[in-house]
Amino acid sequence: MSEFHLTEDQQDCLQELINIAMGQASDQLARYLDTFVYLKVPNIESVDAKELMHTLSQQKNTMAVVSQGFFGYEGIRGEALLVYQEEDSGRIADLLGYEPDELSQDEQLIDISSILTTTFLNVFARQIDNQMSYNAPKLLPSAKDNLSEHLQQMPFSWDLALKVNINYQVTDYSFNCNMILLIPETAITNIKDVLDRILAEF
């Protein structure tokens, strides 16, 4: 986590806050899909803006990206991207089930992404004494040019991306998705202060 410059304690604290947020997001996903979700410890890493653009433009197999903006107090804001991989598209389709009269697969993908993002961020925010509101989630067209264009057109300047690698195993299926939080420097400073405040309590 180079850009973040977290101490070992700060990193451990952040990881635990993320584990708790992830646990509740998975519970919501399990309820939506009416199944059990097997949880693994999520990997977190931070990447700077340039590096992220490069990584995402190198990824040829991105199936879909759902993007959703979030706002809290004290300069905490950002954009959450859920990135699904091409090789998982069949599994995700199986998982969602295609019911022609109900929601399309795109709509369902937007739904589960929004459930994951908002539950995750609500629980995370509560733990750092903040509260979030959200923009409507958007499914980006799959062409990679669209993704870099989208990233360049953010309404704020983001300095760091916090990448949470999530692996879901849902009964017979498993799929991977990356949750990428694009956050500006003020938010990073704020999060670090809060981590220190939490750590000072011990």
Binding site: N19, M22, G23, Q24, S26, D27, A30, F36, V37, L39
Partner: peptide, 9 residues
């Protein structure tokens, strides 16, 4: 004591 709060778990 866990973050995995699914009822089934």
């Amino acid at each position: 004591i866990s973050a995995d709060v699914q009822p089934e778990m």
